[in-house]
Structure formats: structure tokens, C-alpha cells
Design a binder for these strands. Structure first.
Length: 424
RNA sequence: GUGGCUGUAGUUCAGCGGUAGAGCCCUGGAUUGUGGAUCCAGUUGUCGCGGGUUCAAAUCCCGUCAGCCACCCCA
């Protein structure tokens, strides 16, 4: 037997109801905020990510699944959506349609990491991006959409961490100060942080080790070094959030693993995901579009992990079951039952039938297991008298009608929507 | 890439040197055309794979593969 590769999951019907609830909640929220859906490729030229995310980031240096096409060009399975959508935005000249464009997407992403709780090699994200405005309202809107989705899914116990990492101009000065601060104390740093000091000093603030914690607490704040423009932007965003009751926690140490962020960065975190704590994250990236060959276009966006949201939703989601189960007694009776299928399905009813079972008991058991609302019986008696019997499973009551009135009978039955709302 | 734990029926797990087990699921039955509860019966396994120790290995040892969890990093 061949098994699936590590960190890749099959999603079977027992999980799909809950899964779809997440995707539906995301889609309906995006549509409410006038974001438009995009379907973008799963594979890109690797350069989209190496340039977009930054050549020194972990994602690019050790987590990309890459392959060569027949012409020897490097392709990569997308490790995230933003760089890809920026490429598509520039390539399709979307900026010519509206001054501000709002998009959303969802689909699988790929990172060659060691799998663990809430972390897979093929995982799914949904995300949104807004292009064309520097106004902090849009930072607020992006956060509000994610907040709306989380609430729709009943996820309330999270913290929104908020920070500003400034723009390339003011950040340079801060990194210098930070490096100097840590350099003096490099003796007492953990090994990881010693390499961070050279590679990516900002990430020193992200270390979770006991050893480095005291140093972090006394490290200079980026907030004290960002320029006035960045600072005002951040204050406006915080005010919008506070004025509209979006709980947020100031996180002056929050830095992110991708190079393209400017100013706003945020994470939705929880303590219920083991080693992982973020289920959604994003920020502003005002220079990425230009870097990717477009004209200078500020932008802000976020992405959320569907599997992580799945883990955070408690309880199962009940399957709604089917409208009709057809019960027959074989032979002519089965043929007569089959003739009723098109009238049912063409009206949107859901139904099922087992052509092999002929005992009523077996079929009734199956109707019950399939959670059928109504059972339609065409047995030998019904066949002789040209009628059909309907049994309502919840009450157990049943009645018979003439077969020639079947269409008329159906008009009085409403289709039960196969929603995902029932939670146990 | 590094570390810890775990691999036994479809599934959750017990057994931890002496003939492979239980619950759930599944299938059938409890007067022949009626589900859910209960009861009864039944099916299902190269005990992850390879080697070693032993009269004897699911059980002990070594290797290997897989999964989970954690580090790193991230959604």
C-alpha cells in the first residue's frame, strides 16, 4: 500500500462539513466587505517568492518545494499567497480598473517543514489583499474582516497582537541600535540568537528562550525609532480599532518572518494550538508591488490557516442528512422506485436508494443511518394499488397517495438546505 | 535539520516471553412490509518492516520506515 507523503492530509466527509463552514464564513465575510475572489496558480516561478519574501527568509532558504520545468526554469509550489497575488495583480494590470482593488483567495499552500500540531506541508489558507491606498482605514478593515470571520466561527478567545515595524528608512536606524544593544551582550545569547544577530537582527525580539528573555525586555523599542509618518499611521489604526471595539494588544516586540512588511504587522494568536500560536496574520507591504515590477502601490493584507481554525472550533458539525430515502422490494418495485429519482433530484431534493437490499427492515435502518427526513416506500402493495407511501422519520407517521399525484405531493415538500449550522 | 514518544482488527486501545483480545463500527437475527433503544450471533489482523537473542518474540535487543509532539520557523 502506498501512503500519502508526510504532512499531507486527506479530508474525508466526516470533516468536510466543518471545513466548508470555515470557507463559507470567510467567503461571505469577504463579500460583505466588497472583496472579490481570485483563483491564482498553485505553482509560480520560484523567483516570485525568492524576490517577494526575501532571499534570506526561512521560507525561501529551506521550506520551498521546487522543481524544474523541461526548459530548466525553476518553479515552486507556493508557500504563501501574497507574493503570488501581487504578481497576478501587476501582470493583469488590475490597477487600471479601480484606484483601490480588494481581493481574496483560498487554497493550498506548501512548505517543506517538519509536520506537527497545526502545521502541515500542504495546508490551506484564505487571505485578502487590498491594493492602492496608504490610508490606515484599510489596515483596520483587513483586521476587521478577520475578526468578523473568527466571530462567525465562534472563536472568541484570541488576542490580536499589533505592532508597527516602520518603513525601510526608519527601520534601518532602529536595526543599527538594536544590533549594537545585542552585540554588547552577545555572550549571554542563545546559539540561535547569535546567528540571528548577523542574519536578521529584528528576529532577536522573537526568541522564546528563557535565557534571552531578560535581554528582550530591556531591548530598545522600534516604536521609539520609527519616523513621524509611520508613527501617525500606527496611532490612527489603533484609534480606529479602539473606537470600534476591536480588542487589540500592543506588541512592540512583534516582528514577522517575511521581508516585505512595512508599518503595520499583526497576528491573531491563541494558546490552544500547541507550539503554534498564530491562526491568522498579516500586515502592510507598501513596497512589494513596485519591487515586483508594478508601479508604486501601497497594500495591506492577511492570511489565515484553515487547518488551525479547524482545530480551534470546538465540537463537531452535524451533517444535515438527506430529504428522501427510497424503499422498495426488488424487481418491478425497484424499477418503479427508480422512476421517482429524476422528479426528486431535478427539484433539488437529495435522496438515496440501495438497489441490492430488498428487506424493508434493512432499508429502514439505512434510511435512519443516512439521516433521511422522509422515506418513500414503493413496495408490492403500493405497486398494485398504484400509490406511494411516505413516512416521516421524526414522528413515525405515514400516509399513502396515488402515484399520479406524485408531482403535486412534491410541491408541498420543501427542500431541506444542506447547511452546516447544526452543532452538537 | 535536531530531539522525545508511539506503531496490535476499519477505528480507539488492552496484552509486554508461552495458542492474538475488548469496546465502538460493520453484517445478520429477535414471527415472514417499517428505523432509532435493548438483547443475541458473526466477520475482520503478515501485532509497521528487516534482522538478532531464545526451545518459544506482538512482548527483549539492533536497524529501518511511518505517525504524533516539541525545537527552528510559521498560517
Amino acid at each position: 500500500m502506498i501512503s500519502k507523503p508526510p504532512g499531507i492530509e486527506d479530508i474525508f466527509p466526516d470533516r468536510i462539513e466543518k471545513w466548508n463552514r470555515i470557507v463559507d464564513a470567510a467567503r461571505s465575510s469577504f463579500v460583505s466587505f466588497n472583496y472579490r475572489e481570485c483563483i491564482i496558480p498553485i505553482m509560480e516561478f520560484a523567483e516570485v517568492f525568492t524576490r517577494g519574501l526575501g532571499g534570506a527568509t526561512d521560507i525561501v532558504t529551506k521550506e520551498m518545494f521546487t522543481l524544474e520545468d523541461r526548459g530548466g526554469r525553476n518553479l515552486a509550489l507556493r508557500p504563501e499567497g501574497t507574493a503570488s497575488l501581487v504578481r497576478a495583480y501587476v501582470e493583469n494590470g488590475e490597477f487600471n480598473r479601480l484606484s483601490t482593488c480588494k481581493f481574496f483567495y483560498h487554497g493550498p499552500m506548501f512548505r517543506a517543514e517538519r509536520p506537527q500540531k497545526g502545521r502541515l506541508r500542504q495546508f490551506n489558507q484564505f487571505g485578502a489583499e487590498m491594493f492602492g491606498s496608504i490610508d490606515p482605514y484599510y489596515d483596520f478593515e483587513i483586521i476587521l474582516v478577520m475578526d468578523t470571520i473568527a466571530r462567525k466561527l465562534g472563536i472568541m478567545d484570541y488576542t490580536l497582537l499589533l505592532n508597527s515595524i516602520g518603513c525601510p528608512e526608519c527601520r534601518g536606524g532602529y536595526i543599527k541600535v538594536l544590533s549594537e544593544y545585542y552585540l554588547e551582550k552577545s555572550e549571554s545569547l542563545c546559539d540561535d540568537c547569535k546567528t540571528r544577530l548577523n542574519k536578521n537582527p529584528l528576529r532577536l525580539l522573537d526568541c522564546k528562550k528563557e535565557k534571552c528573555r531578560p535581554l528582550k525586555e530591556e531591548a530598545p523599542f522600534i516604536r521609539d525609532y520609527i519616523c513621524e509618518g509611520c508613527s501617525t499611521h500606527h496611532e490612527k489604526l489603533q484609534k480606529l480599532l479602539d473606537d470600534n471595539n476591536v480588542r487589540n494588544t500592543d506588541a512592540p516586540r512583534l516582528v514577522r518572518g517575511l521581508d516585505y512588511y512595512t508599518r503595520t504587522t499583526f497576528e491573531f494568536v491563541t494558546d490552544r494550538l500547541g507550539g503554534q500560536n498564530a491562526f491568522a496574520a498579516g500586515g502592510r507591504y507598501d513596497n512589494l508591488v513596485e519591487q515586483s515590477g508594478g508601479k508604486s502601490t501601497p497594500a495591506v493584507g492577511f492570511a489565515a490557516g484553515i487547518e488551525r481554525l479547524f482545530l480551534l472550533m470546538d465540537g463537531a458539525v452535524n451533517s444535515a442528512g438527506i430529504d428522501f430515502y427510497l424503499v422498495h422490494s426488488g424487481g418491478e418495485s425497484l424499477n418503479a422506485a427508480i422512476k421517482l429519482i429524476p422528479p426528486l433530484t431535478s427539484r433539488g431534493f437529495s435522496m438515496d436508494i440501495d438497489p441490492e437490499k430488498t428487506s424493508f427492515k434493512q432499508q429502514m435502518k439505512k434510511a435512519n443511518k443516512e439521516n433521511a427526513r422522509l422515506v418513500l416506500i414503493i413496495g408490492e402493495d403500493e405497486l398494485m394499488e398504484k400509490k406511494f407511501t411516505v413516512k416521516e422519520m421524526s414522528s413515525g407517521s405515514q400516509a399513502s397517495y396515488g402515484l399520479d399525484t406524485f408531482d403535486e405531493y412534491l410541491k408541498g415538500v420543501h427542500v431541506s438546505a444542506r447547511r452546516h449550522e447544526g452543532r452538537s
